[in-house]
Design a protein around this nucleic acid. Structure first.
Lengths: 136, 136
DNA sequence: GTAGATGCAAAGTATTTGCGACAAG
DNA sequence: CTTGTCGCAAATACTTTGCATCTAC
């Protein structure tokens, strides 16, 4: 964790309001992948007057500024996490809902190669693995 | 195309109604990835009395029966395609929306390996590449 | 001081569901 | 016949927005 969301906002010229600071702090200190509802719950404990509309507006703003990442895992609701310097993908336990982050350079390389093969420059990608714990 | 959706329904014991037959036929003959609205449009041309609720119910039913696949690409709406014997992933042109299907055995293998490394059996996975055409 | 942010409630989308009428096996 | 499906409209879930008020810079 080299730079807080708050610092990133300053770096990107995003105006920092009291509400945004609180949401930023919550997201920085969350190491799971909360949806907007969950974020709203956590934020409400600090300032109960923040409206859910503000949470929606703020995560969208942060996403557009490239500060947080939005995921559409199964389940309908969008979920967010802070973008860290190291890119990673997700392995999701379909029983417990637990999410494991992983990196595999080789897969990354192969993805670029595939895009290249079809004449594309890779802009973004999404890799989600869904699994069940092995009964060892 | 070895087996039509209709045949798969029979094989899986899914009751075939007039509406389902029409939806099945449309999906079998679509080689793009239509959302429910688009499916409803196409279906309406054949039988304008079919309601969109039936389309929703039917794609869900087919999905649960493992006959069609649901994708949540960017854009909010769920999109569907018939499951063919050959698994594939998607490369999406973020400018035009065009979708290219591809297979890469090596990536598939690596995914299993990753899941394995964390003690999981891979049940499902999702790989989407988003790219822009190279100006060659 | 001014542009932009917030809170609230109302409006949008996408999807699901209750219910009486109806059709498949 | 009987169970499950259909069409319709109402309901739900998630997210966005208009507007008057307020706040960061």
């Amino acid at each position: 964790m080299s730079q807080s969301i708050e610092q990133k906002c300053i770096a990107k010229g995003v105006k920092l309001t009291e509400q945004r600071k609180i949401i930023a702090k919550i997201m920085s200190s969350s190491d799971d992948h909360p949806d907007v509802d969950e974020l709203y719950n956590r934020v409400s404990k600090i300032d109960s007057k923040i409206s859910i509309a503000t949470v929606y507006r703020t995560v969208k703003l942060f996403e557009e500024a490239g500060i947080v990442a939005k995921h559409d895992f199964k389940g309908g609701k969008a979920r967010y996490e802070e973008i860290s310097e190291s890119h990673h993908d997700h392995l999701i336990d379909i029983k417990s809902g637990e999410i494991i982050e992983f990196v595999d350079d080789e897969i990354e390389k192969l993805q670029k190669k595939v895009a290249d093969k079809y004449g594309y420059d890779l802009v973004d990608h999404k890799l989600e693995l869904y699994g069940v714990k092995k009964k060892s």
